[in-house]
Design a protein around this nucleic acid. Structure first.
Length: 286
DNA sequence: TAAGTATGTTAAG
DNA sequence: TTAACCTACTTAC
């Protein structure tokens, strides 16, 4: 489920398992063999996410001039999974495998019975220069999950835009990390018609959307799922039979096209907007 | 077992 | 606007 919260969880996962540790790196699938060879034996010193982009920094060994930064974007169906114990024989297409390496930092590296990680199907897996990394940060909007994000640049773009707010929310240059689920859910929770343009939103409404994203996405990082339904709207609170949602979390509208709205009972609508499926409740979102 | 779909982005046309 | 990327899960048969 690679929306922003997933990448922040993965960054934390890398720090916890490999931070300050030497890692063995290889590319069983082969297309990142050169990059993996350059990372092999280095110490992971930092990992962070900006939106849906994951960046991991590996310290330069004594003999080499500079740190290396690994840039990963999972795209629609990439995965990064952690495992405990010795890495199993590679199964399937593994672009990059990291294995906890033990032993003195300057000595030979051995396989270790600690953690391992497997990266499959990413849209991007590359080593980037500091300049490329700076470029990436510069082209991404504020991320509700980063420490002290400044939402002002996002508002400046929104306030003058003739683009529907639903499209602005998925534009990573405006806000980084929001995906299709958070988009649908935050617009529902704030009662905003997805087709209202940026310039048709007042500042308070945008502020409410932003604040709610901060809340929802932080919760997503904690739990690893996207839950957006308020206590007041749970089936029990609404006096209805228990609900079964099968999308990994409890939501109001995402992928609920044709089903009755949990709040007003109108049927949830869906439409394609710029190649992505949009979901909303016409009763609650004006 | 096969088909269909997806929480995303880029590059080609 | 469309295709490509080529994983993983769900649903249909």
């Amino acid at each position: 489920m690679p929306e922003g919260h997933t990448l922040h969880r993965l960054a934390a996962g890398l720090r916890e398992r490999f931070g300050g540790r030497r890692v063995r790196a290889d590319s069983p699938q082969g297309t990142f063999a050169e990059g993996a060879a350059r990372l092999d034996g280095r110490v992971l010193v930092a990992a962070e996410a900006h939106g849906k982009h994951l960046l991991a920094v590996f310290r330069a060994p004594a003999a080499e001039p500079c740190d290396l930064t690994l840039h990963v974007h999972l795209g629609l169906y990439g995965t990064l999974r952690f495992g405990d114990g010795p890495a199993p024989p590679p199964a399937g297409q593994i672009r990059l495998r990291l294995v906890d390496g033990e032993g003195p930092v300057e000595g030979p590296v051995e396989h270790h019975a600690g953690h391992h990680a497997e990266l499959r199907g990413p849209a991007r897996c590359a080593l980037v220069t500091p300049a490329e990394r700076a470029e990436l940060h510069a082209r991404l909007g504020p991320d509700p999950l980063r420490p002290d994000p400044d939402p002002e640049p996002a508002w400046r773009r929104v306030a003058t835009s003739r683009v529907p707010v639903a499209a602005l929310l998925l534009d990573q240059k405006v806000v980084a990390g929001v995906g299709n689920v958070y988009r649908a859910e935050v617009l529902f929770r704030q009662g905003v018609d997805p087709y209202r343009t940026g310039r048709e939103l007042d500042r308070a409404t945008w502020q409410a959307l932003w604040s709610d994203l901060v809340t929802l996405m932080a919760e997503g990082v904690r739990t690893g799922r996207i839950d957006t339904v308020r206590a007041a709207h749970t089936p029990e609170a609404m006096g209805r039979p228990p609900r079964v949602d099968d999308h990994g979390g409890e939501v109001y509208v995402y992928r609920r096209a044709g089903m009755p709205c949990h709040v007003c009972g109108e049927r949830v609508r869906t439409a394609e907007l710029r190649g992505r499926n949009l979901f909303w409740c016409p009763g609650c979102q004006r």
